[in-house]
Simulated scan of single mutants.
Amino acid sequence: MTKPSHTPSNQPDPAPFFTVHTALILLAAAFIGAVVGGLTFLSGGPVAGAVLAGLIGFGTSVPVLRSLIR
């Protein structure tokens, strides 16, 4: 006998993969990283330097945004 493939109606829905708080922080950090990388590239920096600056901007803005947005 096989088990049913759907979840029974008496069990709660599974928790979401990301909370709204996490999604907002990652989206804002990605925007900040893109701006930093774009401005670095437009200022005459090499593409690799712009990518590195964008990644650093993303990485450093995540903990700051986490503490600011609650």
Rank of each mutant, 00 (worst) to 15 (best):
Thr2Val: 12
Thr2Trp: 11
Thr2Cys: 13
Lys3Ser: 13
Lys3Asn: 13
Pro4Ser: 12
His6Asn: 12
His6Thr: 13
His6Leu: 13
Thr7Glu: 10
Ser9Asn: 05
Asn10Lys: 05
Asn10Leu: 08
Asn10Arg: 10
Gln11Glu: 12
Pro12Ile: 07
Pro12Thr: 13
Asp13Ile: 14
Asp13Arg: 11
Pro14Arg: 05
Ala15Thr: 12
Pro16Lys: 15
Pro16Leu: 13
Pro16Val: 12
Phe17Val: 13
Phe17Ile: 14
Thr19Ala: 15
Val20Leu: 10
Val20Asp: 07
His21Leu: 15
Thr22His: 10
Ala23Phe: 08
Leu24Asn: 09
Leu24Val: 14
Ile25Pro: 00
Leu26Val: 07
Leu26Pro: 02
Leu26Ala: 04
Leu27Phe: 04
Leu27Ala: 08
Ala28Met: 05
Ala29His: 00
Ala29Pro: 01
Gly33Leu: 00
Gly33Asp: 02
Ala34Val: 09
Ala34Asn: 07
Val35Ile: 15
Val35Gln: 08
Val35Cys: 09
Val36Lys: 02
Thr40Gly: 04
Thr40Asp: 02
Thr40Asn: 06
Phe41Asp: 09
Phe41Pro: 02
Ser43Arg: 10
Ser43Asp: 13
Ser43Asn: 12
Gly44Trp: 01
Gly44Pro: 04
Gly45Ser: 04
Val47Ser: 09
Ala48Thr: 09
Ala48Lys: 07
Ala48Ile: 15
Gly49Thr: 06
Gly49Cys: 03
Gly49Ala: 03
Val51Pro: 03
Val51Tyr: 07
Leu52Ser: 10
Leu52Ile: 12
Ala53Gln: 01
Gly54Gln: 03
Gly54Thr: 03
Ile56Arg: 00
Ile56Tyr: 03
Gly57His: 00
Gly57Gln: 01
Gly57Ser: 01
Phe58Val: 05
Phe58Ser: 01
Phe58Gly: 01
Gly59Val: 11
Ser61Ala: 04
Val62Met: 04
Val64Gln: 05
Leu65Asp: 08
Leu65Cys: 10
Ser67Ala: 15
Ser67Gly: 15
Ser67Pro: 12
Leu68Ser: 06
Ile69Asp: 11
Arg70Gln: 11
